[in-house]
Amino acid sequence: MNNPGKLLIDADAPRDVPRNSQLRALINAVLDSVVAEGQVPPGEVFDEAQRIVRWHYQWMGVHEFLPHIVGEGRVKDLMRCHREDRCYRWRHEPFIPAEFAVAAYRFGHSQVRTGYAVNADFVAPKIFDASIPNTLPDPNDLRGGKRAPRRFVDWSLFFELGGRVLQISQRIDTTLSAPLFELPFNAPGLPSANPASLAQRNLLRGLVFGLPSGQDMARAMRIKPLKSDDLGDVSHLKLHRSTTPWFYMLREAEKCEQGKRLGPVGGRIVAEGVPRGPRRGQAVVPAGGPGLEALPGQEGWRVHHHRPAEVRRRGVA
């Protein structure tokens, strides 16, 4: 059960990794910007900052993130798809489908590199190094809960901001970087005997949640499943005809899309699970005011949408 008022973080996400800490700093900067403008009543400042951040996140999810991860064609098909034809159909309150959280959206684990350059002064040869004691205030890896000046991220090493060589993610496939098999932290609330291997944790989660096989998910979506030959390397485990969904979706991406994006089953689940913006009648303001425009793909109603350029002019980004 979720505890009211308590922030929930992925059980395997290390707390306060440098990336997450700086993203929270951006959220605080948006809040400060709204206060500085003085156009919002004091009691509504947080709600307004929340709207700005949320709608930027949702817009980028639909128009930048999803086309890269699942393909532009699948995104367009889904946006045109009638609600009753979708696999994920909530009625009273939105929820995160188990197939999304426990299987499909864990595709990113296969994209993690062994190590990263955080900035010009700090290169972590391993993203996590289990041989380093957790008591060190500034370990030479990227585990969370540590603060030091050298741990602040230079975002130009990760995004196309100009003039830097990017650290491109690995392709989506059934291989993981070595450090992910020896995680130096335990999932919160679980016994210390919890497996150190991230792959093992993912596979066990699928079993605990009782998820159907990747092949059964494909059939339910009227998608042709992978051939047994595509999964021949796990036939000795009797998994080539009934494959755990996390592994199935990684292999599907590898076989169907050369690892550049998710395949049809994983891509459909992720595309339906990522927020697509406010729904009709929710958080909508009258059209015609300053800074109002219809979000692409959401014609018929208008929302208050601060474009990234507008936020930069205010000294936020």
Score class of each variant (00 low, 15 high):
residue 33 S to N: 08
residue 33 S to A: 15
residue 33 S to Y: 06
residue 33 S to D: 11
residue 33 S to T: 03
residue 34 V to E: 04
residue 34 V to W: 01
residue 34 V to D: 00
residue 34 V to Y: 06
residue 35 V to C: 01
residue 35 V to H: 00
residue 36 A to N: 13
residue 36 A to V: 06
residue 37 E to W: 11
residue 38 G to T: 12
residue 38 G to W: 07
residue 38 G to Q: 11
residue 39 Q to G: 03
residue 39 Q to I: 06
residue 40 V to Y: 09
residue 40 V to D: 04
residue 40 V to A: 07
residue 40 V to L: 04
residue 41 P to D: 07
residue 42 P to W: 04
residue 43 G to T: 10
residue 43 G to R: 12
residue 43 G to H: 05
residue 43 G to A: 11
residue 43 G to K: 08
residue 44 E to N: 06
residue 44 E to A: 11
residue 44 E to V: 01
residue 44 E to G: 03
residue 45 V to D: 02
residue 45 V to N: 05
residue 46 F to S: 11
residue 46 F to Y: 13
residue 47 D to W: 04
residue 47 D to C: 04
residue 47 D to S: 12
residue 47 D to T: 08
residue 48 E to L: 10
residue 48 E to V: 11
residue 48 E to A: 12
residue 48 E to D: 12
residue 49 A to M: 05
residue 49 A to H: 00
residue 50 Q to W: 04
residue 50 Q to S: 05
residue 50 Q to I: 02
residue 50 Q to F: 10
residue 51 R to W: 03
residue 51 R to Y: 00
residue 51 R to T: 00
residue 52 I to L: 14
residue 52 I to Y: 06
residue 53 V to Q: 06
residue 54 R to K: 13
residue 54 R to I: 05
residue 54 R to D: 08
residue 54 R to H: 05
residue 55 W to T: 15
residue 55 W to P: 05
residue 55 W to F: 15
residue 56 H to F: 11
residue 56 H to P: 02
residue 57 Y to N: 12
residue 57 Y to R: 09
residue 57 Y to V: 14
residue 57 Y to E: 11
residue 57 Y to T: 13
residue 58 Q to K: 03
residue 58 Q to L: 04
residue 59 W to Q: 04
residue 59 W to V: 09
residue 59 W to G: 02
residue 60 M to I: 14
residue 61 G to M: 06
residue 61 G to I: 01
residue 62 V to I: 15
residue 62 V to Y: 10
residue 62 V to K: 05
residue 62 V to E: 09
